[in-house]
C-alpha cells in the first residue's frame, strides 16, 4: 500500500471515468478502449491487493483489519462488475455505468490507504 500506487490507480480510474462520460455524450456504447483501460485498472488493483496481503502476512496489519479486508476484496470486484454491466448496456448510458464504477474505485482506493495508514500514524 503506497501513496504512489493509489495515485496511479486514481489517474487510471479518472481516465476511465472521462472516457465513459465522453461516450455517453457522443451517444455511443463502450468499446475496446474502455474495456482495455478497465482491464489495466483491474490489473493495478490486483497488484495493490497482492502488495497489501504480502505486507499483512509479514505482520504489518492495519488497525481496522475487517473493514480493510472488506474494502480490499470489494474494490477488485468493482471494475469487473462495471465492465460486464456496461458491455451489456445497449443505450448510451453504458459509458456512465463505467464512469460510476471508476469513480467508486477512486474513492475506495483512498479510503483503503487511509485505513492502511491508521497503523502507521
Amino acid at each position: 500500500m503506497t501513496t504512489f500506487l493509489v495515485a496511479v490507480i486514481t489517474a487510471v480510474a479518472a481516465l476511465l471515468a472521462v472516457l465513459g462520460i465522453v461516450s455517453t455524450l457522443a451517444r455511443r456504447r463502450i468499446g475496446l478502449l474502455h474495456l482495455g483501460v478497465a482491464g489495466l485498472l483491474e490489473g493495478l488493483l490486483l497488484v495493490q491487493a497482492a502488495v497489501a496481503v504480502i505486507a499483512m502476512i509479514g505482520g504489518d496489519t492495519p488497525a481496522d483489519t475487517p473493514t480493510f479486508l472488506g474494502y480490499l476484496s470489494g474494490i477488485v470486484l468493482v471494475p469487473v462488475a462495471g465492465g460486464l454491466w456496461a458491455r451489456s448496456e445497449q443505450t448510451r448510458w453504458a459509458g456512465t455505468v463505467m464512469a460510476v464504477a471508476a469513480a467508486v474505485v477512486g474513492v475506495m482506493a483512498w479510503r483503503l490507504l487511509q485505513l492502511w495508514e491508521a497503523t502507521h500514524a
Partner: peptide, 23 residues
Amino acid sequence: ALGAPAVEGGGGNSPGGSGAGRV
C-alpha cells in the same frame, strides 16, 4: 474501439428500465 452507436431509449414502465434509470 470507441463503441458502436447507442440504441435510443430503453424502456418498459420499470424505472430501472431506461438507460439513465439503470445508472
